Simulated assay, not measured.
Amino acid sequence: MRLGGFAHAVGSAEANTFDASLQVVLPKFLADNYGWWNFLNPHTYVGGMFNTGGRTSSVRAGLLWQIPFTERFFGEIFFGGAYHDGSKVGDATHNALGSRALFNVGGSIGYRFTPQWSVLVTFDHLSNGKEVFGTGFDRNVGINNYGAQVSYAF
């Protein structure tokens, strides 16, 4: 279970607002005993970013890979999908996102205090992938969020 706070849509029309996040990260697909290459075995995540200033909020789900650097420091990368309540065409206070369904990608650097408690610094990006995947949507401003999360493992 993760709780976090994020600077919302930095550098865009939706900037200067704040997101609260809630995320559940499920156990890995396979047993956790495959040696050094175990980081290839992903977790599933579900959660949401909820904007406190009336801008774009989203729910999301996908796969998350955790990469240990040391016993306490680790990195994460994630890729999934999201559904948002923001604008598809944009206006003075909302980014033009092009479609309701978006890609969700990003990464984190984390520190594990105990086997249960960790803290993470996270970059989170929402996009319709126009330039990369040629989705055909006219607009694709995207949203970049920067923040921190506290994680508790059950």
Rank of each mutant, 00 (worst) to 15 (best):
G5P: 04
A9I: 07
V10S: 05
S12W: 01
S12M: 02
A13M: 10
A15N: 15
F18N: 11
D19C: 08
A20R: 14
Q23T: 14
V24N: 11
V25Q: 09
V25I: 15
V25K: 11
F29P: 00
L30F: 15
L30K: 09
L30N: 02
A31P: 11
A31R: 03
G35V: 00
T44D: 07
M49Q: 14
F50A: 10
N51M: 09
T52M: 14
G54W: 10
G54A: 12
T56F: 14
S58C: 09
S58P: 05
R60T: 07
G62H: 03
L63V: 13
L64G: 00
L64C: 06
W65V: 05
P68Q: 12
F69E: 07
T70K: 04
F73I: 14
E76L: 15
G81A: 06
G81W: 04
H84V: 00
H84P: 01
H84M: 11
D85P: 07
G86W: 14
K88L: 05
K88E: 13
D91R: 09
D91F: 04
N95A: 13
A96N: 05
L97I: 04
A101C: 08
L102G: 01
F103K: 02
F103N: 02
N104H: 15
N104S: 03
N104G: 02
G107Y: 07
S108F: 01
S108D: 06
S108G: 14
R112Y: 03
F113Y: 14
T114A: 03
Q116K: 15
W117I: 12
S118W: 05
V119E: 10
V119I: 15
L120H: 03
V121F: 09
V121N: 00
T122Y: 00
H125S: 00
H125Q: 12
H125E: 01
L126N: 03
L126S: 04
N128T: 06
G129N: 06
V132C: 03
F133N: 10
F133Y: 13
N140D: 12
N140W: 01
N140G: 07
G142C: 06
I143D: 08
I143L: 12
I143N: 09
I143S: 12
N144E: 11
G147F: 04
A148R: 11
S151W: 08
